[in-house]
């Protein structure tokens, strides 16, 4: 089982990198692009365990290390 984890900046936290990407997209002619936010994607292979244990483990990983919950939110899904 794998966990696909997405880590994004919380709404309201300024994302200068997202802003720079937004400007670059605009200069390439992609009009109507707004509110670009940059984040991280992390894939973790989990040893055999039931879904409830896997969810508990992934949430602990995010809380303890993968995300800085002062500035970041996380979301994940478990995939076969």
């Amino acid at each position: 089982m794998k966990a696909h984890i997405k880590i994004t900046l919380k709404p309201g936290v300024l994302d200068p990198q997202g802003k720079a990407i937004e400007h670059a997209l605009g200069s390439l002619g992609f009009n109507g692009v707004d509110e670009v936010r940059q984040g991280k994607f992390i894939e973790v292979e989990l040893a055999e365990m039931d879904e409830a244990s896997a969810r508990a483990a992934v949430e602990q990983m995010c809380e303890k290390l993968l995300a800085n919950t002062v500035i970041e939110n996380y979301a994940y899904e478990l995939v076969a």
Partner: peptide
């Protein structure tokens, strides 16, 4: 120090990048 939680807040990429 901030990552340990001993002090509050976070340090992000400089606004100028």
């Amino acid at each position: 120090l901030l990552e340990t939680g001993l002090l509050p807040g976070a340090l992000m990429r400089n606004a100028s990048l």
